[in-house]
Design a protein around this nucleic acid. Structure first.
Length: 419
RNA sequence: CGGAAUGUAGCGCAGUCUGGUAGCGCACUAUGCUGGGGGCGUAGGGGUCGCAGGUUCAAAUCCUGUCAUUCCGACCA
């Protein structure tokens, strides 16, 4: 993509409403803009990152055997009345009426709708297990939206639901999802922890949270530096823990995923049954598995930034490399930059070319701000000597290479893509 | 919902206390220079001062109400 033709409104100064690094940098790097409290526009650069996360989530869900569907944002009150949540939930549930004064809500989650889908279409144990997921916009009228994408009212979520004949089988589905979550957050390049969690309002009795570690996290996590034990402080129980609180390490985390074994919490009141081998119907055993996709974007920034801007983990970066063309008006520079741009594109490398007539300082600062993993500086001096300067955004290391040469490892994952 | 703060140009802010008809930096437009860390000059454009009512000869400024945004708390996948 050519920067001169890209809608990328960067900000030199920080808007006063932004208090945390991710919010500040998402705004400054021209990735999002607020529409109203807790509701945001996604601009081209931000949307590219969101899609990267979505795609990794999608691939791992599919690999785990889940099937993608898409459910509506608008849901009828009747379904919510069946589970009692229409009355149980407070103003967080955004209620609306249609022209006939029928009650609806904007979906904050989809247990009711998916359970309804299940019961109308699946009857027998022979049809199970089934795992269905979607990546879709949710709306929760949070008491206090804050910190940009960290706690928005409208946000992007991956929600998956499993249906099994019994608890034993459901635990197998749960385990598949748990492993898929590890694969997802590992692939995204994030430092994360799985912790034993509270089940909260959703119900059920088996649950794990996935947290991205960052100083600005809202949750306190305790974990055993020498073992696997990890728990949310809220859930910590001296009796169940292998070690005393003082021996555990405490860090802040941002909750980006949560998995629950629901059992029959929803299937029972909604009469979503499965006919067993003996011919008798029993409530289907369910699980639900969420990932705050848009929150992952914010969490990644909270974990990966410096004074100059964002430092994207490569799997999430909107582009792999940015070409900083110094004095693009210079014919030799233009030719060299265009050649590199085209040859990288031909190799399947996602590349952003700064072909604007802007000062060097502006180009360098903005490139650092948007945080692409690699920068390649092409200037009159370098061109005269036949070299480009490559910079690694994360380490800051710079290396001069001839045209046609790339930093070690730069194309490693690309070969596979092209082949 | 309780507590607090802030609304003046796209962004960051001054001006409000002490009323006199709106200003600075960045950004933007034109143009010239510059060219390795948000560069310099010249000439420009842009604001019902959140909104409504009130006081006054006169309101960004004082009073009342209201809306919005943000922060702390409680709540929460």
């Amino acid at each position: 993509m050519r920067l001169s033709q890209t809608f990328l409104p960067t900000l030199k100064e920080t808007p006063s409403e932004a208090q945390v690094p991710s919010h500040r940098l998402l705004l400054r790097a021209g990735m999002i803009r607020q529409v109203t409290s807790g509701v945001y526009n996604w601009l081209p650069l931000g949307l590219k990152v969101l899609k990267k996360v979505e795609n990794i989530v999608r691939e791992e869900m599919n690999r785990a055997g889940a099937q993608e569907i898409l459910m509506p944002m608008v849901q009828p009150a009747e379904l919510w009345q069946e589970t009692g949540r229409w009355d149980k939930m407070d103003a967080e549930l955004c209620r609306i009426q249609d022209r006939h004064n029928r009650d609806f809500c904007l979906g904050p989650t989809h247990e009711e709708v998916v359970t309804d889908l299940y019961r109308n279409n699946i009857q027998s144990y022979k049809q199970l297990p089934v795992m269905l997921y979607q990546i879709q916009t949710k709306f929760r009228d949070e008491i206090r939206p804050r910190f940009g994408l960290m706690r928005g009212r409208e946000f992007m979520m991956k929600d998956c639901y499993s249906f099994d004949v019994d608890r034993e089988s459901a635990l197998e589905s749960y385990e598949k999802m748990r492993l898929a979550y590890h694969a997802i957050f590992s692939r995204l390049g994030l430092d994360f922890r799985q912790v034993v969690a509270d089940t909260g309002a959703i119900g059920g009795n088996y649950s794990h949270e996935f947290h991205v570690l960052a100083q600005t996290g809202e949750d306190d996590l305790l974990f055993d530096p020498e073992g696997d034990y990890a728990v949310n402080v809220e859930k910590y129980n001296e009796a169940e823990a292998p070690k005393a609180k003082e021996e555990l390490e405490q860090k802040k985390g941002i909750e980006v995923g949560h998995i629950f074994l629901l059992e029959d919490t929803y299937s029972k009141p909604m009469e979503a049954n499965v006919v067993q081998q003996d011919g008798k119907p029993t409530p289907v055993t369910m699980g639900c598995y969420g990932i705050g996709v848009s929150r992952v974007v914010a969490a990644a920034i909270e974990q990966n930034h410096d004074d100059s801007g964002i430092v994207w983990p490569e799997p999430m970066a909107p582009f792999k490399v940015g070409i900083v063309a110094m004095k693009y008006k210079n014919d030799a520079v233009k030719e060299a930059a265009d050649n590199l741009y085209q040859s990288l594109q031909a190799k399947g490398v996602e590349v952003l070319l700064d072909d604007r007539d802007a000062s060097p300082g502006q180009k360098f600062n903005e490139m650092d701000l948007i945080g692409l993993p690699w920068q390649c500086v092409i200037g009159p001096k370098g061109v005269d000597n036949g070299v480009f300067e490559w910079k690694n955004r994360k380490t800051g290391e710079k290396i001069e290479l001839k045209a046609g040469e790339y930093p070690a490892g730069f194309l490693d994952d690309q070969q596979a893509k092209v082949a």
